[in-house]
Simulated scan of single mutants.
Amino acid sequence: IENKHGHEKPGNKDLMDLEAEPQTPVFDLSLDTRTEGDITTLSVTPVGLQERRGSNVSLTLDMCSPGCTEPYGYGAQLSPRDQTAKEYLREGTNTLTPSQLHTRAIDDQALQAEFYETPMNFVDPKEYNYPGLVRKNRYKTILPNAHSRVILRTADEDEFLSTYINANYLQGYGGEERAYIATQGPTVNTVGDFWRMVWQERCPIIVMITNLEEKNEKCAEYWPEDSVTHEGIEIKVVTVTQEDDYSLRVFTLKFGGEERSLRQYWYTSWPDQKTPDKAPPLLELVEEVEQARAEAPPTSGPVIVHCSAGIGRTGCFIATSILCKQLRSEGVVDILRTTCQLRLDRGGMIQTGEQYQFVHHVLSLYEKQLSHIVEE
């Protein structure tokens, strides 16, 4: 298996690499890239693959022996659309008080167990059997769940390809509909579709959480140096501001005599995240985006969030945003509930156990900041 995917083809990571537990305790550079190999050749469902631990050999045996089960009960025998998985995602809950949150954030074992018990809800690639679709997906096994996918409006409604973008609407805090759109990092082939979506959905803000390259391409540079036109939409850069951990670009978009403003927060400090001390910059970004959202015109649509695949770092950011609101308004957080809710709408949100831990660290820090303010 290794050789087929390994060093002979530069740019396609060795499967051992791909799947091994990250060496660093939290946040490995390749966290987002774990699905880059051609999973299908292993004849394993994406759900099983994301949850496996151990070597490739054990993967193939575990997953393919008849009637096998994973240690935590959600393995390859459950297809991603299995009823039990869906029920788990609808009902999963674990409400934490501040003191429980602080204790749990450092309980690696409990968090790993909870993470691995939670179904990923990936889409079976067979659901999208359309010629030409390959060019519209960055990773062939990470696809948008059909019920919540963003459908691009087009003159020819029957032309599936022109309605398709690898993006899903996600609920926000308190069940707010279409609060976010989670999407893959645009590829050279999908830049036009991406801008169609930005305009169609009246998005006021884009949050980008990836570098353009990390070992290989993660995202196309979909914005201009000063101006460009995509699909009839004229995109102009107004200002670029460099902050410590992100840069902010403000654009004006013009189409059909209408003009709008768009902000892009490009957060680049994630790849070095190997320890929880990277929590403050993420919190700062969450707060900046909340503030900008509050100031956007009332007709504005969802905030677009993307990394490379649009599930890992994207899931961490959206979950953190929702959970900060929950903590402020209810005084408790339910990280499991939020993860389940996000995965119902886009499979794989919060992609690794390390990321799941990280979200706990970030919320723990946020709670300490909040109670510190209250004490003062």
Results as ranks from 00 to 15, higher is better:
His7Arg: 11
His7Ser: 12
Asn12Asp: 12
Asp17Cys: 11
Glu19Leu: 15
Thr24Gly: 01
Asp28Trp: 11
Ser30Pro: 07
Ile39His: 10
Thr40Gly: 12
Thr40Leu: 12
Thr40Trp: 11
Pro46Asn: 13
Leu49Asp: 04
Ser58Met: 15
Met63Lys: 14
Thr69Trp: 10
Pro71Tyr: 12
Gly73Cys: 09
Ala76Ile: 07
Lys86Asn: 07
Tyr88His: 11
Leu89Asp: 01
Gly92Glu: 07
Pro98Lys: 09
Pro98Val: 07
Ala105Val: 03
Ala105Ile: 04
Ile106Val: 08
Asp108Asn: 10
Ala110Glu: 09
Leu111Gly: 00
Pro119Gly: 10
Asn121Met: 05
Asn129Tyr: 08
Gly132Ala: 07
Leu143His: 06
Asn145Thr: 12
Thr154Asp: 05
Ala155Ile: 07
Asp156Phe: 09
Glu159Thr: 06
Glu159Ser: 14
Ile165Gly: 02
Leu170Lys: 03
Gln171Trp: 03
Gln171Asn: 10
Tyr173Glu: 11
Arg178Phe: 03
Gly185Asp: 01
Pro186Ala: 02
Asn189Gln: 15
Glu201Gly: 02
Arg202Met: 09
Ile205Gly: 00
Ile206Ala: 04
Met208Phe: 03
Ile209Trp: 00
Thr210Arg: 05
Glu213Tyr: 12
Glu214Asn: 09
Lys218Cys: 09
Lys218Tyr: 02
Cys219Asn: 01
Cys219Arg: 02
Ser227Cys: 09
Gly232Ile: 09
Lys236Ala: 01
Val237Pro: 00
Val238Asn: 00
Glu243Val: 01
Arg249Ile: 03
Arg249Ala: 01
Lys254Leu: 11
Gly257Val: 03
Gly257Cys: 02
Gly257Glu: 01
Ser261Pro: 00
Ser261Ile: 04
Ser261Gly: 09
Leu262His: 00
Thr275Ile: 14
Ala279Pro: 01
Leu283Asn: 06
Glu284Phe: 03
Glu288Ser: 03
Glu290Arg: 12
Ala294Asp: 08
Thr299Ala: 12
Ser300Leu: 08
Ser300Val: 04
Ser300Ile: 07
Cys307Trp: 05
Ser308Phe: 04
Arg313Glu: 02
Gly315Phe: 06
Thr320Leu: 14
Lys325Ser: 13
Arg328Thr: 04
Thr339Gln: 06
Thr339Tyr: 04
Arg343Pro: 03
Arg346Asn: 01
Gly347Cys: 05
Gly348Asp: 09
Met349Tyr: 02
Ile350Glu: 06
Gln351Arg: 12
Gly353Ile: 11
Gln357His: 13
Val359Ser: 12
His360Arg: 02
Leu365Phe: 07
Tyr366Ile: 08
Gln369His: 11
Leu370Val: 15
Ser371Glu: 13
Ser371Gln: 15
Glu375Phe: 13
Glu375Lys: 15
